[in-house]
């Protein structure tokens, strides 16, 4: 199944739950079986706010604990020096960088 269909299915499921909640508690039964457009249109707003919070939290968390490795840069310089020395000793022409 294409991944976009999975996402659409999740959105449809959330909409269904939302409508069910509106039907059972918010909207008076005698009024109509249809939920009002105004009530339903709150769902996308809540969804966007929730996804935004989730995204900001995940990016912020990732930045706070971003793994860095300054010691690796030093080790790499040592390895490069070692390799250059070996190659020069064995007559490999390294040319210009």
């Amino acid at each position: 199944m294409k991944h976009i269909f999975k996402i659409v299915a999740v959105l449809v499921a959330i909409s269904a739950v939302w409508i069910a909640l509106l039907e059972t508690s918010t909207v008076p039964r005698s009024y109509t079986w249809l939920v009002s457009v105004a009530d339903f249109s709150l769902l996308p707003i809540y969804l966007i706010v929730a996804l935004g919070c989730y995204g900001l939290f995940m990016v912020g968390f990732g930045l706070m604990f971003f793994p860095t490795c300054p010691q690796e840069a030093i080790l790499l310089q040592k390895d490069i020096a070692e390799a250059k020395e070996f190659l020069a000793k064995n007559g490999v022409d390294l040319g210009s960088e």
Binding site: F66, T68, E72
Partner: peptide, 11 residues
């Protein structure tokens, strides 16, 4: 993977 424990990015 760079984004786990013992992995990392420099620069």
């Amino acid at each position: 993977t760079r984004y786990v424990k013992n992995g990392g990015v420099h620069g």
